[in-house]
Design a protein around this nucleic acid. Sequence first.
DNA 1: AATGCTTTCAACCGCCTGATA
DNA 2: ATATCAGGCGGTTGAAAGCAT
Length: 269
Amino acid sequence: MAASMVRICAGEPAVRKGPWTLEEDLVLVSYITEHGEGSWDSLARAAGLNRNGKSCRLRWLNYLRPGVRRGSITPAEDAVIRELQAAMGNKWSRIAKHLPGRTDNEIKNYWRTRIQKRPPQQQQTRRKPSTTTMVAEAVSEGASSSSSGSASQDDGSCAAAGDRWFMQLKTEQPAYYCQNVAMAAATGTIKSEGASSALASQDSCSAEDCWYTQASYPYYSQLSSAADHLGTAGVDASSATQFFSSEFSDSFWNTVNNFWETRPVKGAF
DNA sequence: AATGCTTTCAACCGCCTGATA
DNA sequence: ATATCAGGCGGTTGAAAGCAT
């Protein structure tokens, strides 16, 4: 849907509604990183967001806030949700307090779509996740998968495919390419063998497997221009690290860290 | 391949509550 | 005591994507 605009009355500026754009996310994250949460209506105005305070609060609490954990509900979490829902009823915010990183909205959706509407044996058959969801699939699986999941199927052909994917990414999704480089540099995974090998061993092996889109990662425009720079300058660990530390602020790294902590894992679906 | 149905989930709506003047 | 307002919460909607026919 194209983001709709609601005109309050003639002569007043329209307030944006509908899906949040990357730019709006960045404005909100940057503002809150600098000034903190609270007073949402005034925050929205002060940040220059053409959104109402409730919308900003919802976006922050449910999707942008550090530590928000998305992706598949684990069996253990499922059991907790069932138990607490039986005990408390639809007190989603209270239930969410027992599931660190989960939001009331997510639990509510999970309950309605996975538990309430279906008998247990019918569950699963997931569709491809939405953009926002793919940003975050898998804290539960992520820690182990990011170190061993793809790597377990990795071999020479995968590395070669990784190289192709990586080069394709550079032209087709420059910001994501750049973010791979940035994070690899920051975490020291670019070693003498170069960025592509590091990435091939830790991530998807083909462009088809890459679900990331522009809307799914932060600082897209900055990363795009940085990708242009690195594309011409070449990439090695020290120059990439130096470049990104000089080019981006702490809030950038906070956002990127959060993104990568919850990034999707190949094979999760 | 085209079409309609189903599922998922991001986001909005409206009510409730608590703080404050 | 009460009016007002902002924030929190639960219910609902609608778009997008998968699935079935």
